[in-house]
Nucleic acid binder design. Sequence first.
DNA 1: CTGAAAGCGCTAACAT
DNA 2: ATGTTAGCGCTTTCAG
Lengths: 344, 344
Amino acid sequence: MAIATAQDVARRVGCSTTAISLVVNGRDAGRVSPELRARILDAVDALNYAPNAQAQGLASSHPNQVSLLCPDIRNPFFSELFHGLTDALAPDFSVNIVVGTENFDYGPAAVRQVQANKISGLILASPSARVLESLRPAGPTVLIDSLAVLPGVPTVNPDVRGAATDLAEHLLRLGHRQVVYLDVDRAKETFHLRRTVINAALTTGGGTMTVDRVRVADIATATDYAEAHARGWVATGVTAIVCADDLIAYGVLLGAAAAGVNVPAQLSVSGFNDLQFSALTNPALTTVDFNARALGTAAGRTLRERVETGQADNVIWRSRLVVRASTGVALTHAALATPGTLHV
Amino acid sequence: MAIATAQDVARRVGCSTTAISLVVNGRDAGRVSPELRARILDAVDALNYAPNAQAQGLASSHPNQVSLLCPDIRNPFFSELFHGLTDALAPDFSVNIVVGTENFDYGPAAVRQVQANKISGLILASPSARVLESLRPAGPTVLIDSLAVLPGVPTVNPDVRGAATDLAEHLLRLGHRQVVYLDVDRAKETFHLRRTVINAALTTGGGTMTVDRVRVADIATATDYAEAHARGWVATGVTAIVCADDLIAYGVLLGAAAAGVNVPAQLSVSGFNDLQFSALTNPALTTVDFNARALGTAAGRTLRERVETGQADNVIWRSRLVVRASTGVALTHAALATPGTLHV
DNA sequence: CTGAAAGCGCTAACAT
DNA sequence: ATGTTAGCGCTTTCAG
């Protein structure tokens, strides 16, 4: 048996497809008799009818589909975010995930492609500078984890600044003065901000920070990288590694272990995102909780507002530092030489 | 500027939309002059044109869209699988992820809904018994991690039987005789098979296995559960917990730690899937590698075959046991009383 | 309360 | 080599 269409249902009931559409979408308030309604529902059930979302999208001014663009759904940050988003949007909207195909990120082309479809809304998670530059909003759009200020485009952001400051101060309190920041090689404001805020706070506190980068936020890449550099870091007096993403920190943990460097005794390690798995690592990871799920939910609510009222406020969701075992007191000559700065 | 349609492009170039369609889809082999082709490409670029996938799907007999249904994209098993799938399918097909909305799983309704769309293929990951019962293939369909034998529906499976046997034998070799199997409360063949194979092997080896379940494969749920039961398990002579999914094992690790039970000294813990994070846990998790990514890739290839030749073979991908630190020698009276069985 | 008709943007026969 | 036409399945005015 082929898939039933609204026509099939209409034929069976003996009514127009208009009635089918109205009833199936629950828009039959005093426009379809209860009797007809019941018969339609019966037929829908009997024929196993479900509306074709493509046709619906094409025809309707309210396609009730929103697209989420994210760099890589394998990063649990984005899958949590997606979950939060659907929490806020289901069942009125269905959410379509689109991931990047260009080196684990999405570019302007992916955005264009998505925008060519008829959708109710568009959500861009961690958009790159290239995406932002070429972005021409074509309908309700929400940005997540982006500092861009585009007229009519609300943003939902974690408090990167506050969290990064907390992290830097945490490290300073532990006596860390020589820090390596392991960035991900991506032109994104969020990473720029994480890095510069920490650098500023560290510098103010009398520390120094050097920046290094890995190509992508991926455990294996970071593992190789850290394994090659861990001993070097320790040898040159570096006592802490701040990673731009928890996945990178996971790699550093693995790489350090492979290189025989003890965390946190010889090297403190921290990340960003507080993924679910960060409580499980060995040692458990000190990280910044951006609350991906809540960010997704907030974005969903914001999109709803935007769709329904045409307006929406920006939201900043609170972040918080989660201190676990991967950061500890800095044990270096420098730290020992200035014990007065050590308030743990 | 509104989103450009093929008509806009055609108008600008001064040709028909047919030509646009042909060129944009690269189906212009001796059907469009190089000159026209070039002008079309220019206009496409100038107008930032991208075809509307909904319209394309509706109109075309080759919509080049495939849908992947999976229970919960937050389980890294499925996001890896998705990644493997797109590896095999891109850029010829775009893959749409559909996740469950019924208690973190998808049901027959979700399948129907997806089938109502015009797609080139459908991939069902870890389908439940309910889904399988009511499944009426409507086009190329591939099942992943499912024992169902439906005519014309190829399956891509991990070698559950082999892997589960290996795991059971591993535990027996370590001296474990009293084992708790922590299942996920889902009617799925894959879980049934994991459980029964291990039970059979354990029983044959002189052990006993009791089954318990958590509602869903989720770290937090399993943590609470394990925290409440860990001491009880140890007290009653249970020396090993086999979890139906790595996520559950993560929870058990956390719960055991919270309850003050040492892994693996007092309790060995193992899982299924060998997620990327299983190498990172404390202690690192002994688990069965089903190679989600390869499964996804194989499913993609299978779907391609199915689409192109109408036929496709079932594939079984090799699994392997990954022994790490979370399983160790059983230290109980029973084990000590029969030291002869202890070959580590 | 109900139906007829006109598209949404695209592709696929069928002309030319 | 190119254009014309007729839908894909649905929603949406607009009449009744």
